[in-house]
Nucleic acid binder design. Structure first.
Lengths: 128, 128
DNA sequence: TATCTATGAATGAACG
DNA sequence: CGTTCATTCATAGATA
């Protein structure tokens, strides 16, 4: 009886050890996914989705107060600064406009939606 | 009875361990599953030669019209988009600047030609 | 086959 | 606002 119990305890200990090890490895991997040293702001997918929605609803140049509100709201999904949001809208607007210009240099194509919504790859979109 | 229990525990432990491992492997596979593969532009040697020549002649930041012209010209050697050319010049400029900074961190060395032209390996070029 | 490297592409940030 | 710089991501080809 004692021997059996002892062996059981030994196996139990190894089992716990293995569980511990597996969990630690998983945690380490997740930690690496979070970009330990990140000099630049890296918006999460949720944050990008929210800001893109706002942009597509027509708010392409949010005011200072709007930027403040957006920033506080997307803080629910991760760190964010007002300057970051301002930069994002600036860049997004810039690049959306550029894509538009590249897709439709003459401005003669008619579309109910901005052309970039059909895809922003140049070569594949030139067949419009 | 005890022996039976012990063996059961042993198998149980291995069973749990394998379950754990399988779950981890599945997670890793899902992580790898990302995009439906988007082919990158691969400039030919002739295209690279032309663009490098243009860059070395001083046109490090071609304008939009220049990019358009370059693109149409190098299309003689293969497919190319304007955005591809812009990316190439951006990347090339970036990397040339980085080479220069690595070769001459203080910016005090004098040379009629960019130092990286003598070779971009650090050790072999520091013997000036 | 698995890791490394080169490089096309993307994008946050800053400048004028 | 458009342009430019810097860093980072992702992947094809090289290499062991």
């Amino acid at each position: 009886m004692n021997i059996v119990f002892l062996l059981f305890m030994v196996y139990f200990v190894f089992f716990i050890y293995y569980l511990f090890r597996q969990i630690r490895e998983m945690d380490e991997k997740e930690m690496e996914m979070e970009r330990p040293t990140c000099p630049k702001w890296r918006p999460t997918e949720d944050q990008i989705r929210i800001m893109t929605n706002i942009y597509n609803y027509g708010v392409t140049h949010p005011s200072r107060a709007q930027i403040f509100e957006i920033t506080t709201r997307i803080r629910a999904f991760g760190e964010a600064g007002e300057y970051n949001v301002q930069c994002w809208f600036s860049n997004h607007g810039n690049r959306v406009r550029r894509w538009q210009a590249e897709l439709d240099p003459t401005g003669t194509l008619f579309s109910l939606l901005p052309l970039y919504m059909y895809g922003k790859t140049l070569t594949s979109s030139l067949s419009f």
